[in-house]
């Protein structure tokens, strides 16, 4: 094993040359090349944003809708999403992504429109816009990344921070008596008649990544058919840096702590069918 660990680049390249199966014919998976820029992302190692960007780009390419989709980036870690997604995008003020998306969809109803928002953006400062966008049943996709913390500003308590969970502004753990309980906004919007499809997914395991991709695809297909209302896809995600864990630990912690509180699955399917 030790010997193998010592494997250096040169040796590795040699190995590829010797009996490489790495040919175009044999390629079974590659990051999207058109809807995603070929560039390194600024996200911390192990952050779920990168996976969600990638599968979103995959869906856009597979559906062939690059020229028909417009996205709205939030304020938060994914504020620079437009540097990675090679599609027309607008960067909205903190919390207002769904309002900006409403404006875009209303004047360009034939286009696909989505907002990409974190939990602070969507469930704290932007709660009003989120609820009313969903209540009006705007025919857009809201992609909600929930990692229970304000990542970009350095790990402050978010509306979705778990009870007892430590953050820089709940250094002794979230005390629900004084700080309120975590807001399950996805459950809340599922109650509104304006939403068509509400689901909660994650991207911490290969199977979950597949399911989330499927959910995004379904949401965009519903939008195309225009027969439902707002599609709301929550992705429960991690924040290794601010949770102060390794990426692997953070996914484990997420599975053990976040997922029991934010269980995965469809909350609402089109035509008002609740789970």
């Amino acid at each position: 094993m030790n010997e193998k660990r010592m494997l250096d680049d040169q040796h590795f390249e040699q190995m590829i040359e010797e009996e490489s199966i790495c040919t175009t014919d044999n390629k079974v998976y590659e990051a999207p090349l058109d809807a995603l820029y070929d560039t390194a992302m600024h996200y911390c190692p192990g952050c779920g944003h990168g996976v969600v960007h990638r599968i979103l780009a995959e869906v856009i390419e597979e559906m062939g809708i690059i020229k028909d989709i417009i996205g709205v980036a939030p304020v938060g870690c994914s504020v620079l999403a437009y540097n990675y997604l090679n599609i027309d995008m607008s960067e909205a003020a903190h919390g207002r992504a769904s309002a900006a998306a409403t404006g875009i969809k209303r004047v360009l109803p034939e286009k696909y429109v989505f907002s990409y928002q974190g939990d602070g953006d969507l469930a704290a400062i932007g709660t009003g816009e989120t609820i009313h966008t969903c209540n009006r049943g705007e025919n857009i996709l809201i992609l909600f990344i929930n990692n229970g913390i304000y990542g970009m500003t350095g790990g402050q308590m978010a509306p979705t921070t778990l009870p007892g969970m430590k953050s820089t502004t709940s250094p002794f753990g979230r005390d629900v008596e004084t700080m309120g309980a975590p807001l399950k906004i996805t459950d809340l919007v599922a109650q509104l008649p304006g939403t068509a499809y509400v689901t909660r997914q994650s991207v911490h395991k290969p199977g979950n990544v597949r399911k989330t991709k499927k959910a995004i695809q379904k949401a965009l297909e519903y939008q195309k058919n225009g027969d439902g209302g707002t599609c709301f896809v929550e992705v429960v995600s991690n924040c290794p840096s601010n949770w102060k864990m390794t990426p692997v630990q953070s996914n484990k912690w997420m599975e053990e702590n976040m997922l029991p509180f934010y269980p995965l699955g469809d909350l609402k399917k089109p035509n008002g069918k609740e789970k």
Binding site: Y29, A31, P32, L36, C47, H49, G50, V51
Partner: peptide, 9 residues
């Protein structure tokens, strides 16, 4: 699938 960087082919 789980690579956040899209670095693996």
């Amino acid at each position: 699938l789980v690579c956040p960087e899209g670095a693996i082919t």
